[in-house]
Nucleic acid binder design. Structure first.
Lengths: 190, 190
DNA sequence: ACCTGAACACCGTTCAAGT
DNA sequence: ACCTGAACACCGTTCAAGT
């Protein structure tokens, strides 16, 4: 990733990827309001003109950042799915537990926000959601639900996960005990 | 609402409320990016200095807009709760149906976004969530769930609703048939 | 009490010109 | 191919001055 894409690139020259990497770093540590062209230029020691050679506009950068995030995210989820050895029940439990105390909501929220104004971001987020949905659906299926049940219940769970990440509201935060109850109930016969 | 709050106010003078009302209009019809001080000044035929007499900064305006939205929202929900005559089952159905095809997500999404940077907005959104949660919890209770079940299941439903509003992703959009299934299943005994 | 007018800092975007 | 430098439009914020 550190090597320039084309062999003709000069020594200190930047790649579009360099901008995206630094952008994701800033987004992660300082939030969306800090991701600005002027700020990136300061960090990378170039002027704004350089940015506009690599990207059409700010939206395009957001798209690249989103793709980077999507790749990382996908890998993390794949590791999680590699818990395939565990019984489906345990897999579900691990996924929801990860959701509740993981600090990665903030990123996800911002990406969803961006996806409203940028097609590329929307695509990356949709990919991620689809991936999670299938993991959950498979787990519920293995526990003996018929296909229709597995689909609607997986949808309910995944939507609830997204809602939990976006809520952070006055609603009661589920305890691990609640989660166990819900999973047991989700995976009962109809 | 059109009459100035203080009796000492001059004829053409603006109220803080006037700014909030116009702000909510713009937010509703053109989205969050259009809600800008300069734009409001154009619409209201005043200069920016006028804005800063009424509000400390842009965040303060957002807070006022949020409170306005919260009031409207609360009233709408109360009407919905006035379906108290209907069996609880029908109430749940009406609420979820309203969620699925209502076009009011966009507003809610923006308000949640704003609530991350403004305490007042966060308060208004929390109020709204709490209100919905109690409606759902009561309905589920009436259908014979014990208090603990009612709490966790209502949480699951409400979070799923929030997630659905924020998702708009690649996930399957639930049909009304799915909703009926889920409600029936939600309100079964453990 | 309520607003104007002018200023300032900051950001996104464009583009001719450099190497 | 990759970047500088300077310009422009636009927005948020401040503040002295007006009525």
């Amino acid at each position: 990733m550190r090597t320039p894409s084309a062999s003709t690139a000069r020594a200190g020259a930047l790649t579009a990827d360099d901008w995206a990497v630094r952008g994701l770093e800033i987004l992660t540590t300082e939030g969306p309001r800090a991701v600005t062209i002027a700020r990136l230029c300061r960090d990378l020691n170039v002027t704004k003109g350089s940015f506009y050679w690599h990207f059409a506009d700010l939206e395009a950068l957001k798209g690249s950042i989103a793709q980077l995030w999507c790749a990382q995210n996908r890998q993390q989820l794949t590791e999680l799915a590699a818990l395939n050895e565990l019984p489906a029940h345990e897999r579900l439990r691990a996924m929801t537990a990860g959701l509740i105390d993981d600090g990665a909501w903030a990123l996800q929220r911002t990406l969803r926000e961006w996806s409203r104004t940028d097609e590329r971001v929307a695509g990356a987020v949709a990919d991620s959601d689809q991936f999670v949905f299938e993991l959950v659906q498979d787990a519920i299926s293995e526990l003996g639900a018929d296909p229709r049940q597995a689909r609607t219940r997986a949808g309910l769970l995944v939507y609830a996960g997204i809602g939990f990440a976006h809520g952070q509201t006055a609603l009661p935060k589920p305890t691990m005990e609640d989660v166990d109850d819900l999973i047991a109930w989700l995976t009962e016969g109809s």
